[in-house]
Design a protein around this nucleic acid. Structure first.
Lengths: 127, 127
DNA sequence: ATGATTGTACTATATCTATAATACAGTTTA
DNA sequence: TAAACTGTATTATAGATATAGTACAATCAT
């Protein structure tokens, strides 16, 4: 299926984020070979050049490495994977609170809204 | 001071978000006249055309309206302002949990991480 | 050995974005 | 009344982005 992409940001950046999340969350396992540029591009419904750009940019973080003629692989460094997972989560949390703060919600108010949402989802999505 | 803008997304979109937040969080009060296109552009260190685009796009949401020769004003509709504030907050919350879920964190795990972060900030930023 | 697959490179083209530089009609201000 | 300011419009230019199409050398599978 085509990946969910919006037109508000460069596609290659969105591809990078998606793949990074897939690596870090374990969709691809350490050491795994990932699909070829062309296959990934086909899956994402995107030009191969765009996917190539996303992947080569991603290599700079060390999550991926390419073997020029045999394919592209996930790093074996599980410590790095775990670290990036925690770093990303922390980043998401801080950005979220920054947005809420800018909207005028304090940390406590934000926490309450979150708990409300979670409670509501626990007992069903309607009402 | 120049506004905080990154190069990953179109500037006019970032301006829109910033101004929208400023309206909704009350930096600009209902009925207020906001600074002119040129002044805002100067403040943001951005081309007047770019600011003009951001403002005219923003008008479609109803938060602003322009009087062609006298200036641009915040809506008086406080009900709309409150609604947009809650809608935006809700959107931020859902997007945040979606990101965390994609990283592999459950709702409960995410909530715990948040509480950790808040506890840590309560007792000082170091350590 | 042969053919398919791999990452990579290159050119060309179209669109979007951002800036610069003007211009104009109506309103406000002094 | 005259000058300054308002939103808006226009043209031109430069850069980033996305796609299309093609090519090549090394490796892998059969």
């Amino acid at each position: 299926m085509p990946w969910e992409l919006d037109n508000d940001r460069p596609i290659y950046l969105q591809l990078m984020e998606r793949i990074q999340h897939d690596i870090i969350s374990g969709v691809y396992k350490p050491g795994d070979k990932i699909p070829s540029v062309r296959d990934l591009a086909l899956d994402a419904a995107v030009n191969p050049n765009t996917m190539q750009k996303a992947l080569s940019e991603l290599e700079r973080s060390g999550l991926l490495y390419s073997q020029r003629t045999s394919g592209r692989f996930i790093t074996d460094d599980e410590k790095l994977l775990k670290k990036m997972k925690m770093d990303l989560a922390s980043e998401h949390i801080h950005q979220f609170f920054e947005q809420m703060h800018h909207l005028g919600f304090s940390d406590d108010e934000t926490l309450e809204m979150i708990q409300d949402v979670l409670r509501r989802e626990q007992y069903g999505t309607d009402s």
